[in-house]
Measured scan of single mutants.
Amino acid sequence: DEVTIHLGDKTIRVDGLDKELLEILKELARRGADEEELRKEIERWER
């Protein structure tokens, strides 16, 4: 499953996201997290 996250004018595509992680990323994005913060969160989950 590829998920596309839209952040204002930026788009991040991620393969096979965990549903819980997806919810966390959506919440972070709502709070104004930037792409770098979201990537760090994704990397934390992948470990």
Rank of each mutant, 00 (worst) to 15 (best):
L22W: 12
H6M: 13
E43D: 08
D15F: 03
L28R: 01
K26S: 06
E46F: 15
L17V: 10
L7V: 15
R13Q: 11
I42Q: 03
L17W: 08
I24K: 11
E37V: 12
L22E: 02
R47V: 09
D15H: 08
E43M: 10
R47H: 13
L25W: 01
D34H: 07
E46V: 12
H6E: 12
I42N: 00
E35C: 04
D34I: 04
L7P: 04
L22G: 04
E36K: 08
L38N: 00
L7H: 04
R30L: 12
D18E: 09
K40C: 03
E2T: 13
R39S: 03
W45M: 02
K40L: 10
I5L: 06
K26D: 02
G32A: 01
E43Q: 11
G32F: 01
L28T: 00
R47T: 09
D1G: 13
E20Q: 14
D18H: 12
E27C: 15
E46S: 08
L22P: 00
R13P: 07
E20T: 11
G16T: 11
E23T: 11
E46M: 15
W45R: 02
L21N: 00
L17Y: 10
R31C: 06
T4N: 10
E20Y: 10
E36V: 11
D18P: 15
I42M: 07
K10G: 10
D15E: 13
A29K: 10
L7Y: 06
A29N: 04
D15I: 14
A33F: 08
I42Y: 05
A33L: 05
E41Q: 09
L38E: 00
G32E: 01
R47C: 12
E2G: 15
R13Y: 10
K40I: 07
G16R: 10
R31Y: 05
I12F: 06
L38R: 01
V3D: 11
L28D: 00
R39H: 04
R47W: 11
R31E: 03
E2M: 13
E36D: 13
L25P: 00
E35V: 11
K40A: 14
V3N: 15
D18L: 06
I42P: 00
A33D: 01
R13S: 12
K40M: 09
E35W: 11
E35L: 09
V3G: 11
G8A: 11
R44D: 05
R13F: 11
K40D: 07
R30W: 06
R30A: 10
R39W: 12
